[in-house]
């Protein structure tokens, strides 16, 4: 088990390295620079700026310098927000993004899971068809369509909830963004869990469980759910990536000060370090989550250990 975990963790290193390297050189290949303005700066100031941010060095040297700093946890100074370190900017945005993502994921697991179980229990009856139609519709409508529709109904039409913006501690600001982000995942999770439950329910040991007189609910919760969770657990990796990328749009639509907005703005302004920092944080989160998923997988299925 420990060896399996160590091996998976080792796999994360090349993933992150590829990600940071691709991002670094992609940004540098692009036309334009962080200090391009309408009016060009005097040459001596431009030179001083370049020297200050080490932009006058050769590209490989800058790349190695960045990697060296990154290893020490230093994300460098922001180009666009003068006087701010990238780590400070990310520290301000991360709590909002994390709250948004975690709530959306929790909601998706809870509702999607319940819907999946409901559908599997009523296989080929009305609740099954209802849940599956709703889920199919949910998969077909992306977050960025749901988001404005939610605003139209709940903020503009009914005036129940704020249409956007963020006041610290006002949780009603998060309701619509979380819903927009969670809806596609709810559908995906419901479909997945229904499918794997139906497959598990055909196993002989479940016939045994039913034959010894357990109630359907008990059969599901005690015997069928754990093996049926396996595909769901492995889906959590892609789901995290989906929620993170979705949050870039949702933060944009609802004007939330998370790190997704820094990403798009940073790329537009050629704020090299800010974009790299956000990508590194997202990449680390995805890799870390995939690692946890692997661990959970091993814990749920004892057969994995020997493999």
């Amino acid at each position: 088990m420990m060896r399996h975990a160590a091996k998976r963790l080792l796999m994360a290193v090349p993933t992150l390295l590829v990600l940071v390297t691709l991002t670094f050189f992609l940004m540098r290949l692009a036309p334009g620079g962080p200090f391009d303005r309408e009016r060009s700066l005097p040459p001596e100031i431009e030179k001083a700026l370049a020297a200050e941010y080490h932009l006058d060095e050769s590209l490989p040297k800058q790349y190695l310098r960045y990697l060296g700093n990154l290893l020490q946890g230093d994300l460098g100074p922001s180009f666009q927000y003068e006087g701010f370190r990238v780590s400070e900017l990310i520290a301000t945005g991360l709590p909002v993004s994390l709250a948004l993502g975690a709530l959306a994921m929790g909601l998706a697991l809870l509702i999607g899971g319940a819907m999946g179980i409901l559908a599997a229990l009523n296989h080929r009856r009305l609740p099954d068809y209802g849940v599956m139609s709703a889920a199919l519709l949910g998969v077909s409508i992306p977050s960025y369509v749901v988001a404005p529709l939610l605003v139209l109904v709940f903020a503009i039409g009914l005036r129940w909830l704020p249409a956007g913006g963020w006041v610290t501690g006002r949780w009603s600001d998060l309701v619509l963004p979380v819903m927009a982000l969670a809806l596609p995942q709810i559908s995906a999770i419901a479909r997945l869990l229904r499918g794997s439950l139906l497959e598990v329910l055909q196993q002989p040991y479940l016939r045994t469980a039913r034959a010894k007189g357990l109630s359907p609910a008990k059969v599901i919760l005690r015997h069928a759910l754990k093996p049926a969770l396996m595909p769901l657990v492995s889906y959590l990796g892609p789901a995290t990536a989906g929620i993170l990328t979705g949050s870039v749009v949702v933060e944009q639509v609802f004007n939330l000060p998370g790190i997704g907005r820094y990403f798009v703005q940073g790329a537009l302004n050629r704020d090299y370090t800010l974009v790299l920092g956000v990508v590194a944080v997202y990449g680390t989160m995805i890799v870390l989550f995939n690692f946890l998923v692997d661990l959970a997988y091993g814990a749920l299925d004892p057969r994995i250990k020997t493999a």
Binding site: T15, L26, A30, T245, A267, V279, Y282, N290
Partner: peptide
């Protein structure tokens, strides 16, 4: 394991 969409966004913004 890469969040490719980020790289695509970057590609679009930059080029």
């Amino acid at each position: 394991a890469l969040p490719f969409l980020f790289l695509v966004i970057l590609l679009m913004v930059l080029f």
